[in-house]
Simulated scan of single mutants.
Amino acid sequence: MNDQHATLHDLRERMASFVRERDWEQFHSPKNLSMSIAIEAAELMEHFQWLTTEQSEHLDPAALQEIGEELADIVLYSLSLANHLQIDLAETVLAKMAKNERKYPKEQVRGKAHKYTYYRKQEGEK
């Protein structure tokens, strides 16, 4: 199964089954899951810590494998947190994208990397 064939529902169900079969629900509080996401994100950052931007763009297959596993851990804990809190991820992601589109209008931000508050200040100066 790959990105073109797996649904978010499939992944959530697979993760829920994995957790349930191991009786890990007792450990999967929102606090613990959110901490686990942060820990895995730090482990992901570790792979890039001392690389230049250029080096980070040209990774060898072994590094990509390890990075992919850290990214998978982040997604897996995120799926567990969504399961626990009964958050519809697809709905939430799409709503967040719509919000980001409003905060970062493409005509105004294209090619720029400022935080959205920068653009609000610019509008206030007009």
Rank of each mutant, 00 (worst) to 15 (best):
G68C: 04
L89W: 13
P30I: 05
L51F: 11
E13Y: 09
H47N: 07
D23W: 04
E57Y: 03
R12H: 12
I87M: 06
L94P: 02
S17Y: 05
P105R: 15
R120V: 09
P61Q: 14
G111F: 14
D88M: 14
R110M: 15
M1N: 10
W50N: 09
H84Y: 10
H9C: 07
M1K: 05
I37P: 02
E57S: 15
F27M: 08
I74G: 03
N83L: 12
K31S: 08
N32D: 10
L89T: 12
E46I: 00
R102F: 09
E101V: 10
Q65G: 08
E13W: 01
L44T: 04
S80H: 00
S36P: 01
K31T: 14
Q86M: 13
K115N: 05
L8G: 12
E25R: 10
E70V: 00
A113D: 08
H84G: 01
H5D: 06
I74E: 03
R120L: 13
V19D: 14
H28K: 06
W24Y: 15
N83A: 11
L85Y: 12
N2K: 12
S29L: 03
A98R: 13
W24V: 02
R120Y: 12
Y116R: 11
H84I: 05
A72C: 03
E57F: 09
A42V: 12
S78H: 04
L76K: 04
R20A: 07
H5F: 11
K106Q: 11
M15D: 07
S80N: 13
L71I: 08
S29W: 02
F27I: 00
E43K: 06
A6Y: 10
F18T: 01
P105C: 11
D10S: 06
K126G: 09
V19L: 04
Y104D: 08
E125P: 04
P61W: 11
A90F: 08
L59M: 08
R110D: 15
K99A: 08
H47C: 00
E40K: 03
I37L: 07
H58T: 06
N83Q: 09
Q65T: 13
S17I: 07
E91C: 14
F18L: 09
K121M: 15
W50S: 08
K31C: 03
P105S: 11
L71E: 10
W24I: 04
S80Y: 01
S80G: 03
K126W: 06
A6N: 07
I67L: 00
E69I: 01
L94V: 03
P61F: 02
A6E: 12
G124W: 06
R120H: 13
Q4T: 05
E54H: 04
K96F: 01
A6T: 15
P61T: 02
E43M: 08
F27R: 11
N83P: 13
S56D: 06
L81A: 01
R12F: 06
G111T: 13
L81H: 07
G68T: 00
H114K: 01
T117R: 15
H9N: 05
H47V: 01
R20Y: 08
G124I: 14
